[in-house]
């Protein structure tokens, strides 16, 4: 069970890394619009610009 001495601190470090990743994703605006991207895949950008 000696491995726990390493694993427990490691899990804390991992939790902080995940937290940091989440902070980055929120700050970069990935959560600002949760609906738009789902619809965007349906819109066909080709052929809209007639002019």
């Amino acid at each position: 069970m000696e491995i726990l001495i390493l694993l427990i601190p490691l899990s804390v470090v991992l939790a902080f890394l995940i937290g940091a990743g989440f902070v980055w994703s929120v700050k970069s605006g990935q959560f600002d619009d949760l609906e738009g991207p789902a619809h965007r895949i349906l819109t066909d950008d080709d052929g809209i610009h007639h002019d």
Partner: peptide, 12 residues
């Protein structure tokens, strides 16, 4: 954003 961040970090 700030509320989402606080909530998510607390849940994590």
């Amino acid at each position: 954003r700030s509320l989402l961040l606080r909530t998510a970090i607390a849940v994590l």
